[in-house]
Computed example of a mutant assay.
Amino acid sequence: MSARQKTTGSNRTHDDPPTRPARRGRTQAPATADAVPNPERRQEILEIAAKLFAEYGYKATSIREIAERAGMMGGSLYYHIRSKEALFIEIHDRALDAAARRVRAAMAPHTAPWARLEAACSEMLEIQLNAESLTLPIMNNFRSVPEEVKAILVKKRDEFETIFRDIVDALPLPPEMDRQIYRILLLRLLNTADTWYHEGRMSRAEIAMQILAIFRHDAPTTQRTKGTTKSSTKAAPKDPPARKRRAAA
């Protein structure tokens, strides 16, 4: 044997790659079916994690709990995800992408700016007030995530808000009205719908019409015709003559 092939007190030769020490803080999972990447299994994990984040919040949800709900060992979960932070970001982004698709689909049949705004408002209310929707509770976790995660989430939210930025930019608003403030107030109203909406007196579609009337500065009398919305403002009654007002007093 040559010196290159001699062993060093073990069965490994100098040509063999060195053995890497196991990482600390992470359980070494046994070779199981969960150790093999599987798109369906990963989707199941995402759905389980999304429900836990929505129910308990970001901080109170642990990787161990997600793994237990999925019927896995904690270490096996890392074959499907990189970290808790990356998992939350992916779920957050998917929720906003799904919401964006729904809002754009709702606006698609309309061309008039006000009709597009009403459609977008109505769909946003449906998304935010749906008990089975995870969009709102996932978005409400924003303040509890680490700062480096927030920076990533903000980029996605800015991307989503371009939908409403484009709508508001197309509206025939008075030149002195600031469109950014207009958009911020509108989105704040829609994004907090769960704090002020109560079932019963008005439907969600009717509330969307009221929101449109307020932001359009119209009286809340709206007529629908073939996919467009026409709002008519009734003229206020004229004050009676001064003589009649004094007589009535």
Rank of each mutant, 00 (worst) to 15 (best):
M1A: 15
S2D: 09
S10M: 09
N11W: 11
H14A: 15
D15I: 07
D15A: 09
P17C: 03
P18L: 14
R20M: 15
A22R: 09
T27M: 01
A31H: 06
A31K: 12
A35H: 03
P37V: 02
E40S: 08
Q43N: 11
E44Y: 09
A49H: 02
L52C: 06
F53A: 02
A54C: 01
A54F: 01
A54L: 00
G57W: 13
Y58T: 10
T61H: 01
I63E: 09
R64S: 10
E65H: 12
R69T: 04
R69F: 13
A70V: 06
G71Q: 02
G71C: 00
M72I: 08
M73E: 09
G75V: 05
S83G: 12
S83I: 06
K84V: 03
E85P: 08
A86W: 05
H92Y: 12
D93Q: 14
D93A: 15
A95D: 04
A95K: 06
D97Y: 01
R101I: 07
R101C: 07
R101A: 10
R102H: 04
V103W: 03
R104D: 06
M107N: 13
P109S: 08
H110S: 14
T111Q: 15
P113L: 01
E118V: 03
E118M: 10
A119R: 08
A120S: 11
A120Q: 06
S122R: 11
E123C: 04
E123R: 10
L129P: 01
L129N: 01
A131P: 04
L134T: 15
L136Q: 10
L136F: 11
P137L: 15
N140A: 12
P146A: 11
K150L: 02
K155E: 15
K156N: 10
F160R: 05
F164D: 01
V168H: 02
A170R: 14
P174T: 08
P175H: 14
P175K: 11
I181F: 04
I181A: 13
Y182E: 00
I184Q: 11
L187Y: 07
L189T: 14
L189N: 12
N191C: 04
N191P: 02
R201Y: 09
S203W: 00
S203M: 00
S203R: 00
E206D: 04
I207F: 14
Q210W: 03
I214G: 12
H217D: 10
A219C: 07
T221Q: 05
R224H: 14
T225Y: 04
T228F: 04
T229G: 04
R243Y: 03
R243K: 06
R245Y: 05
R245D: 02
A247T: 14
A248D: 13
A249C: 11
